[in-house]
Amino acid sequence: MKKMLLMLLMGLMLVTATACGEKQVVLNVYNWGDYIDETILDDFEAEYGIKVNYEMFASNEDMYVKIKQGGTKYDVAFPSDYMIEKMIKEDMLESFDAASLENYPYIGEKFKGLSYDPDNQYSVPYLWGTVGMVYNKDMVDEADMKSWDVLFNEKYKGQILMYDSQRDALAVAFKTLGYSLNSTDPKELEAAKQLLINQKDLVLAYVTDNVKGIMLSEEAAIGVDYSGDAFMILLEGGLDKFGYVVPEEGSNMWFDAMVIPKGAEHVEEAKLFIDYMSRPDVALKNVEYVQYSTPNVEAVKNLSDELKSIPYAYPSDEELDNCEVFVDPGTFVEEYNKAWVEIKAN
């Protein structure tokens, strides 16, 4: 007993001793799962002597709830467009004049002054992309793939994967009908809902993370998917076998950006980290690993041929013509949810 107490005491002393000894800053970074080349974190630690404590979330809403609840001390977070808008509205983000960062000029002009942060006060774009259809060239007629209509075509019954999230699934329906994907018109929502109810018989499954698994095992011909996830399918399954397309009716164009939550303890270090991530060589290293699209124009120049050859990885302006960015729907999200439950319960 005495021995154990002694050991406990010694252990305690050891802990306090080290705690006093080091004054190293620990930066708390909160990002999506598997959304960074983690060796970059080591590089950053080596270069600036700032330790990075890296944590991950699975969805914008997870992250929002956790930060909103308080008790967390994240210095850098990576929310998406509509969530940034919502967090700015609720005064949850630190304004840090992003444009003053050293590497900010490397961010492409079309990624600045976006609707969710018009004055570039709160965020620096990290990665961006689209939502489109990934398809198996052996199983579809490529001529059909230009339009979302293919998802409602009897020909592909039981071979279609829809995205299992109310916002993304409804966005597809809105765009097919020629509406805005941010529609809050009850009549348009009703029409979109009806379209998706009628589509149900054709759908093999509603999935999110396992689009990749199902597509690669050739269980489905077409899947609605986020661009980066689709690119992984293309690279793994081969570009001659799999394709990705953003339909001409337009789609969702999204941005994930780096922000500093209010109450962060290390704002200066957070700015340093954000700036570091925007440095062309770091952004390049990162995007070669994560395979989404980078807004860093200097990094795009040096991209490997393989990544450059992916369709719609860096689409032209006219290819993005009809694309829109999600807007925070406020309490109308409850109507979306109700429509979604009706679709699923039918």
Binding site: S165, Q166, V203, Y206, E334, V341, K344
Partner: peptide, 25 residues
Amino acid sequence: PSLLGGGRSVLIGNLVEQQFLVVGN
């Protein structure tokens, strides 16, 4: 239900999950 049911039908557990994680109600 989300993994094996392919999310084709919604059960009470999914309903609760969505209210907390998506809708925020």
